[in-house]
């Protein structure tokens, strides 16, 4: 079986890796050849790292990679039984991708919409197959997160959900079903938390490291809000906040100045080596 993964960014790479590890063929699509090249390297490294963490039976990285096809032609998704969309968190861009996927994919192909905050109802409306559009929110790092949010749009059909659940099971992911609302559960709560942490920083109450220490040492969180933002990618965090602000009409989601400033400076977090924290020793694969 072939799964198409559209969007070869940080999440797309992780999703492609997980699908390969499920023993399936992957067609990875991105309009940028540069992104595809980087993605292939990241996927290879991810497969090796996974084997380091969990030595065991199963095909090695080199074998799994023979099942990966990279292309900048969206038509490549036509051969897939399911398409996992992970393009940038921009409603207009996503709508355009879904319209084009609708044209190249047979009617039965299921679309997994991996969006941070856009309601599935809105994305499904950009297609002529709303019954076959299922929201699946993968979180970063995909290889290490055993669960995902699964969202049914108002017209999502049982058959599509079953197909998605089967795929997720093969990928070793548990599906936690939540309602179709902006930000679903994870980002509706987390984005505000990150944004408030950025405001705490702006107001000079504490330095970035200190803010995170309060969460890890006083509250037992695995990672503080600012380190979490760095992991997600500050551009994604900001884009998600804007989607939430617009859809909820709530000014609390207006991106904090610190966040806007860092994004403008190109300090996007782990993927650029610097974000709220200096991670120059920890470049994301």
């Amino acid at each position: 079986m072939t799964v198409a993964v559209v969007g070869a960014g940080v999440i797309g790479r992780g999703v492609a890796q997980a699908v390969l590890q499920a023993g399936l063929r992957v067609v990875l699509v991105d309009r940028s050849r540069d992104a595809l090249h980087q993605a292939a390297t990241a996927i290879r490294r991810g497969l090796l790292a996974d084997r380091l963490r969990r030595p065991g039976a199963g095909p090695d990285a080199e074998t799994l990679l023979t099942r990966l096809t990279c292309t900048s032609d969206l038509g490549g998704a036509g051969a897939a039984a399911l398409v996992i969309e992970n393009v940038v968190e921009d409603p207009a861009v996503k709508a355009d991708v879904y319209r084009r996927l609708d044209a190249v994919c047979p009617p039965a192909t299921v679309f997994l919409a991996n969006t941070s905050a856009i309601p599935i109802a809105a994305l499904a409306a950009a297609t002529r197959r709303p019954a076959r559009v299922v929201g699946v929110h993968f979180m970063n790092p995909v290889a290490l997160r055993p669960a995902v949010e699964l969202v049914r749009g108002p017209e999502t059909g049982d058959e599509a959900v079953r197909a998605v659940e089967e795929l997720l099971d093969r990928m070793g992911k548990r599906a936690i079903q939540v309602g179709d609302a902006p930000g679903f559960v994870a980002n509706r709560v987390l984005m505000l938390m990150v944004n408030e942490a950025a405001r705490v920083l702006d107001e000079g109450t504490a330095a970035a490291e200190t803010i995170d220490r309060v969460f890890t040492e006083c509250l037992g969180h695995a990672m503080g809000p600012l380190a979490t933002a760095d992991l997600i990618g500050l551009d994604t965090v900001r884009a998600t906040l804007l989607v939430l602000r617009d859809r909820l009409g709530d000014e609390r989601f207006e991106p904090a100045p610190a966040l806007t400033r860092l994004v403008a400076q190109g300090r996007l977090g782990r993927k650029t080596g610097r974000g709220f924290h200096d991670l120059s020793a920890r470049v994301h694969a």
Partner: peptide, 19 residues
């Protein structure tokens, strides 16, 4: 850590890690 280590070894020493 495992991923960070693989990335470090490849990018720092210019080698390709294999299975």
């Amino acid at each position: 850590f495992a991923l960070e280590l693989v990335v470090f070894v490849e990018t720092t020493y210019g080698v390709t890690v294999e299975s």
